[in-house]
Amino acid sequence: MAQRHHDLTDSTAGRAAPPVTGEVLAGYLRGQATEFLRALRLHRETGGGQNVGGQNGSGGGPADAVDATHALRRSARRISGSLHTFRPLLDPGWSEEIRPELAWVSGTLALEHACASRLERLLLALQRLSGATVIPPRTLASGTGAATVTAVPVAGSRKAAPPRAASTAPDRGNLTVGAAKAGALLDRQLTLARTRAHSTALQALGSSRFHAVADKVAVLASEVPLAPHAATADPRPLAAAAEERLADAVAALPLVTAGHPYNAEALIHGLSPDPAPHPQDAPWHQVRLLLRLHRYALEVLHGDDGPHGDDGVLLSAGQALDRHRDASEAAAAAAHAARTPRIAPATAYALGVLHADQRHEVEAARYAFQRSWQKQTVGTTTS
């Protein structure tokens, strides 16, 4: 049976506090809608139409445009996630219409940043593995500053990572020869992907579809279409159900395997020439999504200062799953580059080593998540 980590339905706690009703959800949604509109206004003021993901453009600086885009994604995710968790308290037709549109906005705006972050992560890893400078000057000058937030933990995660199994070290000489060409190949492929994502985001922000979403969010900032019974309904059972779904998904993970310092079976699958996504990754990505929904539900009930995990356990668990997602996608990008026709053997070798390194990072992230989740479970059973 799934185990709750926060008592969201404790009737004794409610005796000393005002009753919790759907108005709590309405207030949260109004606040997030206001944040969305504020971010949209900042995005336009900073010339965000030409600077979606940090590329230089007119208007405000790149950092301002990146902050505005991040704020748009953040509020869109929270509104969409809350509509999913608390949908019985909302007008069903309205919520089912706007929720996928907000997910579309968030996902579209995230693509360019993901490409930039993935490129920097891979280039830094390639440089660390080979000892050679592989980051092209054009990449350094292109302003991928926002990507450094996710790229830095590649090396830093070693401190929290489990010890790796003894294995033959890569041939540093051959790796150095192929690293520069591998880096150049990754730079070409991911920069092209980033440019396409930038164009897609520009088109999305100027589309009638996005304007329709913005109009609905503007209405949401003043009026939330709650269901008729929401005024007296308690949202805590719905938040508890979201927590149960998370706990059930975690229980289904291969934590016993991930608990070992080295998951040889996963690495064997990771080195497979099959271009399909890694078979073990999907359940972990699903847990990441459910953990995010659980955190948003806690924000609805308790605000930003609420119990989001004892000693930041939920936060650290979420960060581990973010690293897992980043490493798995980086490994897939390295594998995709290695399948480029007619590349030199040294280049293919460097990309193979890079792919294996990122799959090791996947295992390290799973191990870190397991440790965080165990702390959460122990804290619950002893409280």
Results as ranks from 00 to 15, higher is better:
residue 1 M to T: 03
residue 3 Q to M: 15
residue 3 Q to R: 14
residue 4 R to Q: 14
residue 5 H to I: 14
residue 8 L to V: 09
residue 13 A to M: 12
residue 14 G to P: 06
residue 15 R to W: 08
residue 29 L to S: 14
residue 42 L to G: 02
residue 43 H to E: 08
residue 48 G to E: 08
residue 54 G to P: 03
residue 55 Q to M: 11
residue 61 G to E: 02
residue 63 A to H: 05
residue 63 A to Y: 01
residue 68 A to S: 07
residue 73 R to V: 09
residue 78 R to P: 10
residue 84 H to A: 15
residue 102 L to T: 05
residue 102 L to M: 08
residue 106 S to R: 14
residue 110 A to M: 02
residue 110 A to E: 04
residue 120 E to M: 11
residue 121 R to D: 00
residue 130 S to H: 02
residue 130 S to Q: 04
residue 132 A to T: 03
residue 134 V to S: 06
residue 142 S to N: 11
residue 154 V to R: 00
residue 162 P to Q: 10
residue 163 P to E: 00
residue 168 T to Y: 05
residue 170 P to M: 11
residue 171 D to Y: 12
residue 174 N to T: 06
residue 179 A to N: 04
residue 180 A to F: 06
residue 181 K to G: 04
residue 182 A to L: 01
residue 184 A to M: 02
residue 195 T to H: 14
residue 202 L to T: 15
residue 209 R to D: 02
residue 210 F to I: 15
residue 215 D to F: 07
residue 217 V to Q: 00
residue 217 V to K: 09
residue 218 A to H: 05
residue 219 V to Q: 10
residue 220 L to T: 06
residue 227 A to R: 10
residue 230 A to R: 12
residue 231 A to Y: 09
residue 236 R to W: 06
residue 237 P to M: 12
residue 242 A to L: 13
residue 243 E to A: 12
residue 243 E to P: 01
residue 245 R to W: 06
residue 246 L to S: 06
residue 248 D to Q: 11
residue 249 A to M: 14
residue 249 A to I: 14
residue 254 P to M: 09
residue 261 P to Y: 06
residue 264 A to Y: 05
residue 266 A to G: 07
residue 269 H to S: 06
residue 273 P to I: 01
residue 276 A to G: 09
residue 279 P to A: 03
residue 281 D to H: 02
residue 283 P to C: 09
residue 284 W to V: 08
residue 287 V to T: 07
residue 290 L to Y: 13
residue 296 Y to V: 15
residue 304 D to L: 12
residue 304 D to S: 13
residue 306 G to C: 13
residue 308 H to V: 13
residue 311 D to P: 04
residue 311 D to N: 13
residue 314 L to G: 13
residue 315 L to T: 11
residue 320 A to I: 11
residue 321 L to H: 07
residue 326 D to C: 01
residue 327 A to F: 01
residue 336 H to C: 00
residue 337 A to D: 03
residue 349 Y to D: 03
residue 350 A to L: 00
residue 354 L to A: 00
residue 355 H to I: 01
residue 358 Q to L: 02
residue 362 V to K: 02
residue 366 R to W: 09
residue 381 T to H: 10
